[in-house]
Design a protein around this nucleic acid. Sequence first.
DNA 1: CTCTATGCAAAAACTTTGCAGGGAT
DNA 2: ATCCCTGCAAAGTTTTTGCATAGAG
Lengths: 121, 121
Amino acid sequence: MDNVLNLEKIKLTTARKAILELLSNSKKPLSYEDVKEFLLMDKATFYRNIAIFEEEDIIDSFESNDKKRYFELKRDKHSHFICSDCYTIECIEENPKFSLKNYKIDNIILKGVCKDCNKDE
Amino acid sequence: MDNVLNLEKIKLTTARKAILELLSNSKKPLSYEDVKEFLLMDKATFYRNIAIFEEEDIIDSFESNDKKRYFELKRDKHSHFICSDCYTIECIEENPKFSLKNYKIDNIILKGVCKDCNKDE
DNA sequence: CTCTATGCAAAAACTTTGCAGGGAT
DNA sequence: ATCCCTGCAAAGTTTTTGCATAGAG
């Protein structure tokens, strides 16, 4: 765990370690609501540390259809699929090929209906 | 304007006409904040009518990085670029090629840094 | 002792809901 | 007279901020 942190800038407190461990054990991005039952800290502590991690480029985040922010450890470029029905988020390792002159594309989000919800219709 | 509405189900009130006209005159999706100075109606009326339009598949919406919801009239498939710095939204007519077995992809959102903000860095 | 991290409560930002009045048919 | 539309105010949801205390070095 220590190796992801620039320990000269960020002290690895219990709260921070807990957040990073939860994120690193997860296969998909998590919201505060997803993690709150596993974390003993106050939401203010969570969000404040998240802000620090983002400044230090340790994590990424994005907003989903459900109005929540989802967090994940920074890793190889990948995309996310968000289901408009069940709000499930999946990581897609294969990236759509796309470029725009003079634009920097960091993140691609695909929205639609996932295989499970697609089945139900 | 009338032709976009299924008038058997939705009465074309003054408020609804105003919303649809604003959206149809815009080249990009708009949030409530974008339109509120041009619309005389209360925000409750706006959001309630938006909900009706979405049910009837007259408009689409998505959340942006700025935590606001953006609305546009449904039209030919296209993508959106959202700038993480200035939050500007642009419509991209050319779609990234991508498909996922058993998934339905309705909407592709590209996040990154737009040409203007890219210049500043 | 000093500086940062934390908890709690309140605020903020956007959207939704309850309720009562108004308008159209 | 009925039914839907609207405005206003209040509530809801997620995230942020202020402030005082706790804790580490």
